[in-house]
Design a protein around this nucleic acid. Structure first.
Lengths: 217, 217
DNA sequence: TCCTAACCTGAAGCTTCCTTCATCTAATCA
DNA sequence: TGATTAGATGAAGGAAGCTTCAGGTTAGGA
């Protein structure tokens, strides 16, 4: 699988007519479907095009190479998750830390696990395609949203909100990855979700001013 | 990159004389070196063999295919980290939860970050090689060690030690991954390590019987 | 010393896919 | 309706690299 060449990762041609936007969309959907059906090792550009009902040539009209295609699919998926989190963060402005944590975790796991297979499949291509960059970009977006939410909490934080947000993200991503790689996801899911809430709430409690008062007493 | 064929992942021939064990070792070391120098996309079996000072044929005498080679390298590295954690878990038997957490986190980060570049490079091949299985196996080993340590703590836990251990692992791995993928690791490392200790300690506190007493008061 | 098994060599076969481009069709506009 | 641009096609070029195997070299036992 080719290393993402730094040049030429942008779409070769922007779709203007209706039929071409339809093609691009079909191609992106087909990418995921092929990934799920045959795995990344046997995902070929020809196969994706066939599945999308177009020819390879068409595919190459909108994606300069295979890598760019996979990146686009990955970005689409991650953006969905990030947007879900941003929505929650706005929703929860001004609430308590515990409410925030619960809502955030539920939204995150919900979005990630909506279709588990896609998440897993995309994880597997991520490293072939400089997925780290895309992941990082989304991470930064989410971090800003979470930090802002935290800063608005009833209980003031005693620490840098960005750092705290970063820890929450690490914990959430760590847990979801472990779940996704686990072979008995169903069995563990609910218990682990509850436990993650406990984990995060305990931490936030420790980061809040109220905690200091409690210690002083 | 070929999907790991389920058949034939075992070494083709076991080294018996001294020179062949030396070859195998050199090949494994060369694998990492090549990975670091040219990246996984340009890692070829021929290049690894050259770097190791042997011919490709020799390489294929001990590894049935490229995938098996990478798996072996990955397993070697992960085993090192796991062993470090097992050592700490035994060392910390009978201590307090806070002591355990601190020691565990320090050992883990130390082992993972000893050579950051190797960790990152191996993450990148992991998905080409069914690294999830190897990761899972090591995860199970570590889980057992951590759970046993936790069960021996001064403060009795109010929860299943395996679940608690699992959360610790998720948090630690999540944090280390985020650090490894970050572009300013050095700057954040110490702050994040401290914060991880706070995170884990708060959680363990919440899981301990003492916490319930405190709540009752 | 001689023989056998272990070990090593590396050119070449073979497969797999990415990507191009010359050519064709459909849509839009004057 | 004719001209122009957008969109689609898919056979074939070409590169890359994994893996083999026929034939050599080294080590250790009898």
């Amino acid at each position: 699988m080719p290393q993402p060449s730094l040049a030429e990762l942008e779409p070769r041609k922007l779709p203007v007519q209706a039929r071409s936007t339809a093609s691009v969309d079909a191609i992106l959907k087909a990418t995921i479907q092929v990934l799920l059906k045959v795995g990344k090792e046997r995902l070929t550009t020809t196969r994706v095009a066939m599945r999308a009902g177009v020819s390879v040539g068409t595919l190459y009209q909108y994606f300069p190479n295979k890598s760019a295609l996979l990146q686009a699919a990955l970005r689409r998926h991650l953006d969905g998750v990030t947007e879900a989190m941003e929505r929650v963060c706005i929703e929860q402005t001004g609430r308590t830390l515990a409410e925030m944590a619960t809502a955030l975790i539920n939204a995150f796991l919900e979005a990630k696990m909506r279709d588990v297979k896609t998440s897993v499949a995309l994880y597997s291509v991520s490293s072939d395609v400089d997925g780290a960059r895309i992941t990082r970009q989304n991470g930064v977006r989410a971090n800003a949203a979470i930090a802002e939410m935290l800063a608005s909490a009833r209980e003031p934080l005693t620490r840098d909100p960005k750092l705290v947000a970063s820890m929450l993200q690490s914990a959430m991503v760590g847990v979801s990855r472990r779940l996704l790689e686990s072979d008995e996801l169903e069995k563990q899911f609910d218990a682990v979700r509850e436990e993650l809430i406990v984990l995060v709430c305990s931490y936030l409690e420790a980061c809040s001013a109220r905690h200091l008062e409690a210690m002083a007493r």
